[in-house]
Computed example of a mutant assay.
Amino acid sequence: LQAVDQYSQYGEVLYISGEESPSQVKHRGDRLGLSGDNISIMSETEMESIYDYVIRKKPRVVVVDSIQTLYSSNFDSIPGTTTQIRECTLKIVELAKTHDISFFLVGHITKDGKVAGPKLLEHMVDSVLQFEGQEGLNYRILRSLKNRFGSTNELGIFNMEEKGMVEVKNPSEFFLSERDEKNLGSIVVPVLEGTKIFLLEVQTLVNESPFGIPKRVVQGFDRNRIQILNAVMEKKIGLNLSSKDVFVNIPGGIKIYDGAADLGVVMAMISITKGIEISQKIAAIGELGLRGEIRKVSFVDKRLKELEKLGFSGVYLPYSNKKEIENNKYNLKMIYLKNLAELAERMK
């Protein structure tokens, strides 16, 4: 509804509600403080009636909530079936192309987080955007799964407040607001998501395994990548974790795909295993190779500026990035590393 209100500034918007009555939609709009100007609400689920109305009124934007409630009277199957979703979407695509109308289709998702209905639905639209959130947390993550107009790696962070969804202007500060001055098994990593840099905390915990098979519990990071990092640490610096339970967590519900977070994970593991505290103003950037080398990462200048902006005092980073940034001035102490052996020596 907030998006509908914004689009209404540029022309007539039609909101087709297949799940709620117009009075329910209006009540939500009043609660959010929306004006309602240039917004029409239609409580209809028959595709033929919607088709005729849209051709007659020609709104600038149409929102369908939800596509699973629509049906075509030309078919006997019930709403939400593969046939109905496909045929209704085809009609909508025809309307959008013929009359230059933008359509937003709200869809249900399955238990594993995928768009419900035939895969064809995702192929027929220009963009697929998904809101994600964890129970008990006020913020929501808007993630692009498909985008014909740009990158699919972009993220938007929104906070759920009394007046609706509010954009979080500084996500890094938002995610790092609860850290202590000194931390065991925890460090900050600047990761790249699309064109944005997010500062995220990597938390690790290592315990003696009371059972024969040690556990590997990972949230927000690639579990196979953790296995590789553990193997490299054991081989190159003698940090034996094969008989211990290892837990890795990225607080906030965001999953890290950026290889530049490897060095942060390794430092957090060494910290918790050897009892070495890490200052909350220290960060780590670097990808780890199988030979124990710390490899060059991309967009290092952008990552350093984000750390500087949030008041960090030092950063561990690959030596191979030194030439790229040595002429730039940062209010950060640079600690360059070539390999794991140098890191282990510094963290004694």
Rank of each mutant, 00 (worst) to 15 (best):
E87Q: 06
D100L: 10
R86V: 03
T152N: 14
L290E: 08
N183S: 09
G150P: 07
F211I: 15
P318M: 02
S271E: 06
M334N: 09
L310C: 01
I141A: 05
E167I: 06
I141D: 03
N224P: 08
S279T: 12
V266G: 05
V188C: 11
G220D: 11
N240Y: 13
S49Y: 06
E342W: 02
G117K: 08
I78W: 07
H123P: 04
T152S: 12
V64T: 04
L304Q: 04
E173K: 12
E193C: 01
R28C: 00
S298R: 15
H108P: 03
G113M: 11
D30V: 07
V265G: 00
P59M: 13
I278N: 14
N159Q: 06
A344I: 03
V266L: 07
R140F: 01
V62R: 03
L184W: 03
I197E: 00
Y51W: 04
R148N: 06
E324Y: 15
L200K: 08
M124N: 07
Y139I: 01
H99D: 09
Q6T: 13
M160V: 02
G292Y: 03
G185N: 01
L121T: 01
A3M: 10
L199P: 00
I213L: 14
N328C: 06
M269N: 04
S127K: 09
L239Q: 02
S127L: 13
I213S: 14
Q219P: 00
E293N: 10
Q84M: 05
N331F: 10
R179F: 05
S102F: 04
V63W: 00
D112Q: 13
K281N: 13
S127H: 07
I270P: 00
M160W: 02
I78G: 11
N170V: 08
L192G: 11
D180L: 11
L340D: 03
P171D: 11
V300F: 12
V232T: 07
K236M: 07
S209M: 04
L288R: 05
S35K: 11
F131P: 03
E162H: 07
N159R: 03
I187V: 15
K255Y: 11
E178C: 03
S23N: 12
G220Q: 10
Y139H: 15
L307C: 13
I197K: 00
I109H: 09
N147G: 15
P318E: 12
E306D: 11
R291T: 14
R86I: 01
T98S: 12
S43Q: 03
E94V: 05
R148A: 02
N38S: 10
N224L: 10
L137A: 11
A96P: 05
Q134C: 05
V128F: 01
E293R: 08
G36N: 11
E324W: 14
N224D: 15
M334A: 08
K97A: 10
P79S: 14
